[in-house]
Design a protein around this nucleic acid. Structure first.
Lengths: 206, 206, 206, 206
DNA sequence: CATGAATGAGAATTCATTCAT
DNA sequence: AATGAATGAATTCTCATTCAT
């Protein structure tokens, strides 16, 4: 059995604590002001140690972003994979988002900095952006669920990918707003708002 | 008549061309990699000249962002101020966005970098964030239009501010996606998609 | 006879007001922080105008220093040229210093920056130091008076030049201290102190 | 025994060699023209290394000045603390000065730049002037010795602080003159001159 | 003559990255 | 493997000087 050697365990632990430190520091100072030194201090390791596990700052940030977003996507996948109606599915996906960002508030800044593709010709100083795929992957997964619902007649036909983009970004805006609110309403209230909006729009119907 | 002296004209021209250069360079390289030197080169002036018109890099970026966003908001305001139903109004607002971003593609990166409040404790190195207000102002204006529509019975009652956030961010995602598409569909198609989604949701109705 | 043309008068007036401005700004900000812009503003002329009358910053500062020190030296010369005993002469010289610095408080900083030879190999960025001569000239004039007094038997024989240096710098220290005192004593008191020290030393005699 | 760890030794060595380089460069180029790059080159380290040991240029210059002046003051204190008559004491103090400046010729320019309080409103760009105290402290220590001598009847009563200023600055002038002389006389000759002048003045007595 | 916008060399400072211990 | 002192490229910003108007 894949029994991890002590070295592997230590290694994984290091990687994790460095990534957590990275997220905390970027969450605190913002992407541009987060220095390797401060990240190292936060992680309780020496600056040089970081370079044993990550090629450079860019890779560190990217991998940190990726591993967080993967955890988010795991939750979202779990929601999407359920055999439930599109109503419940959307609600579950949104609940996954709300829960994740609530538990990982420091991820916020990192997410804002890297979530979107930066278009062509980006590869400069900071940010060489191999991250773009995730954005698409996430949207595509959601689009797939929408297409299934379209097939089942639950949802009107349309460009599922763009709908997915709209829904993800729109709901993210609300979720991030929650983080800034002094007294956010219960999750239920915001979830109702989001799912209601997505499913039925804002138009009043008799 | 407020006849502008020659100096004022020249001054305005300088400011404009520097801001345009700023937008182009940030559009090309990204916020972090855009250096004063490259902006100066792009604008065809010396580095020092920029400092005659802007206190420092921060003010340059901020003012550049602001003047662009003001142009966007002018268009949006024009759309919102029309005496038309919420359907048409939303479509007009979205059309304003699509048009603006289509004409100002370089603004994209700058917009992504500065549009959102960065939450508490941001005031670091770069970005003292006087930009935040615009984000809220824009959302609030839109929220006001929604509230009016609620009063008129066109729209279901709900948290207008959060609805506005959702709509703005969601539609922005689609608009930005257009910029990356090799062969974007006609504006009409995307506008139909967006307004349809906002007004009626995705649910299929018999 | 040398009737000054209007142009010459204007020219002299310009030079004078620029030099006065230079002294005031250096007096206020210190040598290093005094910029051409601020000097121009203080003088009420454009930056470029200064360069019509002075080759560069260095020449401006030097000439400003020189013209002030020449005024000081005129007073000192007047004191030295009197046909009076060395006691009275020293007192008169010191009175000239006290009076001059009292009237030209802004000169203080400039004086501190330039008074002394800076040794070999100075010619750098700021300060190419053609000013050194004055320091020596002043000391030599004073030394000449001491030598005369030695010849007349009023003063013990010794290295008149070094005595002069000692006396000038020592008394300057006291005079500058006056400028910093909130409530300086009457000039007479400090003059008694200085001349007493120079002439009779500090030793108590029966 | 406070055995220093190797790191501490290395650290102290670095600090010392950077400070020595600072003194040499300022001695050679003058305060204003001494750049961090040249100081680094002179010290044989990289520019960045200096910033590991000193916050900024100002702190570097200040600390360099201070540590030199402290060494001078140690010597002066040793002279002042001796239980000897004022004659011998003054001579010893002056000998300390002569010796120190002879051994630290590069300190000269730094000393000229920072020794004196620059009067009110100095706190500008360069020089926040924590250096002022030393000037006063040194004068006050010397004044204290003079007061003791007054109490013992060796010295006439008078404003001890101003006398001290006079003596320090006056003798410094002579000592600095030595540094510029091609063939300075023996120390003894100058010391005789200085102490004679201070104690007995220049007046010839029968 | 006077102006002041424009210039660009040059200075301080930061920080990702390396490498000897 | 871990460290952290050292590095130096890169960046921002300043300001003396020039020159077209």
């Amino acid at each position: 059995m894949a029994a991890k050697s002590k070295e592997e365990v230590v290694q994984e632990y290091r990687i994790e604590s460095i990534q957590e430190a990275t997220m905390r520091v970027i969450g605190r100072k913002g992407m541009a002001a987060a220095t390797m030194q401060e990240i190292a201090d936060e992680a309780g390791v020496a600056k040089g140690t970081i370079y044993l596990y990550f090629r450079d700052r860019e890779e560190l940030v990217e991998k940190t972003f990726e591993s967080a977003i993967l955890r988010l996507m795991d939750r979202v996948d779990a929601a999407l994979d359920q055999e439930i109606g599109i109503d419940a599915k959307i609600r579950a996906v949104m609940a996954a988002h709300v829960g994740f960002f609530g538990e990982n508030r420091e991820f916020f800044r990192l997410y804002l900095s890297l979530r979107m593709p930066e278009g062509p010709a980006t590869r400069q100083r900071r940010q060489k952006q191999h991250c773009q795929p995730h954005y698409r992957v996430r949207a595509e997964k959601f689009a797939k669920a929408l297409e299934d619902a379209m097939d089942r007649g639950e949802v009107r036909r349309g460009d599922a990918y763009k709908l997915a983009l709209f829904i993800i970004e729109g709901s993210t805006a609300i979720i991030l707003e929650r983080l800034n609110e002094d007294a956010p309403p219960s999750e239920e209230v915001d979830l109702d708002l989001i799912t209601g909006l997505i499913l039925d729009g804002i138009r009043k119907r008799s």
